[in-house]
Design a protein around this nucleic acid. Structure first.
Lengths: 339, 339
DNA sequence: CTGAAAGCGCTTACAG
DNA sequence: CTGAAAGCGCTTACAG
């Protein structure tokens, strides 16, 4: 038995099956008219020989690479993924990898792009950009190269563009706020971050609408997205000065800071203060008390993003953007304390 | 100006520079003898035209894809990355992406491989396998296809193979144990997990040696790697029954469980119990109290792994495995309480 | 329904 | 120092 040095080529399959390379290609790609018996024989031979098309040759000829790129948020390598919750990004990544694989696409992960050439270097058909900033420069690079891109999260500066997938931040926010009100909260505040991602922008808007509709005074504090730990402490302090009895905190890192600040002031959660975070994570589940959280369904988000990108690559017309339903996971941090 | 429909080919560069395609190729790949002036002119033209080689064509011809694969640990998509600490894996991933990019390699992320064909499908030159299990089946697939692979973490069933990079778990363990002893601990225990990764195996061995050398009674409790939260509670309970005054806990998830169990028993950390975790994370930094941790240097681990894989791809002889130095980050959970 | 031929964009002996 | 030519493994009009 030969060492795997030379994998079988399409010619080997053609010879073994007694047909031309053209016919083998047709069978393998389900194209053209091929007699059913021939088709079966060729497929069987290809299988037996363990034939796999050479992706370089196929890509060179067809112009398609069957490869898509994934670009994570523009952030410091070590700190800023925490803006939402690190679990979410790892899960999103693994699920995008899985979804791409299932659609026969290879998944290339790209570093933060500095120049257009960084993108030109790779043989890709398109890309998924996570958490676009307003008028995101990465998306602009794809546009400039004529490469299809979709985003996870909406670019809030490009109202019209339909090529995005996003968790339903507004609905999640309203669900949380109603949940807090149902638990008896009167002074419901929001602690969030000042960064132009649609997830946060939509939550803020939903909060403003909700307070207006219920005739409540809005109490919104925004943290700076840098120097995470100190800005969290500072913002949490400002928020507690407003004396809320419940807080919705979309990002996990600020929820951690809020719990600490509350503890330092002698406030008990949920006794004196209800707290809900906007994304689920191991940290939310195991914090003391366990935090009520929003399940953003990274698996479904990933699948929809890959599907949308493939649609765009194949030139299908834009559809409606895809809004992913979210689910509230009630935990002890918002449980009504029985007297 | 043309839309980017047709990127320049090597022929366009050759014509614009008045030389042959061969010469352009030589210049671009630093091969053959080319007159310095010619070289400069060709390089300038290529730059001006924004020429980028077509990776499919190059790969088809040269047999090299300039693409490497990354395989994360075999785990449930959502739960088991927490075995070490989710921050570590996300940081490792982003750093591998960055390191590969700097070495002009594209980085393909692969899902858990089920069959050999899953691997054959992709045009890759080699792969990095993270946290190999004993006699890891993923590594075996690479071997079977004659594809070079390196691992992050050592396969404890393959003592001889030098193609791995790993943080120095033994040294980290000894540093932690000495640190605990210096803080006055008499009954130093270890809480770890029963999974065949070298990181944990080496820590256990180092702990055994350290206790023997210092004439101390070893107190080792291993948690099961599944059903993370309940197994953590169970193992932490068993450990506290041994009444240690200090614990080294390599994985973050068990440290979280231990802190909770200690709290439930009315034990204060660090007052009654010193705790150190084996990997740094946002969770370790922000837990109450902040946890002394080991910095595993994922950035350097990533760089060395990419470098080692490229060595192997290029057929260079095996060198010594690469052991990454680790650093202790002392925090409040092991601070001596001043009386 | 099937096949011969061209060609995707490179790199690499080879000749001069 | 430079270039003409072959060929990597496919897919795709095109002809029959």
């Amino acid at each position: 038995m030969q060492p795997s040095r030379s994998r079988p080529r399409i010619r080997d399959v053609a010879e073994a099956a007694g047909v031309s390379e053209t016919t083998v290609s047709h069978v393998l790609n389900n194209k053209g008219r091929v007699d059913a018996a021939t088709r079966a024989r060729v497929a069987e031979v290809a299988e037996r020989l363990g034939y796999r098309p050479n992706s370089n040759a196929r890509g060179l000829r067809s112009g398609r690479a069957d490869t898509i790129a994934l670009l994570m948020p523009i952030v410091d390598l070590d700190a800023t993924h925490h803006i939402l919750a690190v679990d979410f990004y790892l899960s999103l990544t693994m699920n995008v990898v899985e979804a791409a694989f299932e659609r026969d696409q290879a998944l290339l992960q790209l570093p933060p792009l500095r120049r257009l050439d960084d993108l030109r270097r790779f043989g890709i058909d398109g890309g998924i950009v996570v958490d676009p900033l307003p008028a995101d420069p990465r998306v602009a690079m794809f546009d400039r190269l004529g490469l299809p891109a979709v985003t996870i999260g909406r670019d809030i500066a490009h109202a019209g563009a339909p090529w995005w997938v996003a968790a339903d931040s507004a609905a999640g926010t309203l669900t949380v706020l109603d949940h807090l009100a149902a638990a008896g909260a009167r002074r419901v505040a929001m602690l969030s971050v000042d960064i132009g991602w649609s997830w946060f922008a939509d939550a803020e808007r939903a909060y403003a609408e909700w307070t207006a509709r219920h005739g409540r005074h809005p109490m919104l504090v925004l943290a700076r997205p840098d120097k995470l730990d100190s800005s969290a402490a500072e913002a949490a302090g400002r928020l507690l000065d407003l004396e809320p009895d419940a807080v919705y905190v979309p990002p996990q890192w600020l929820a951690t800071g809020l719990l600490r600040a509350a503890r330092e002031r002698g406030l008990s959660v949920p006794g004196d203060l209800l707290v809900s975070v906007g994304v689920d994570s191991h940290q939310a589940r195991t914090s003391e008390p366990a935090l009520t959280a929003v399940d953003l369904d990274p698996a479904r988000t990933a699948r929809e993003a890959v599907d949308l990108l493939i649609s765009r690559i194949e030139g299908r017309p834009p559809q409606a953007p895809r809004v992913i339903p979210v689910t509230l996971l009630p935990r002890r941090s918002t449980a009504v304390v029985t007297t």
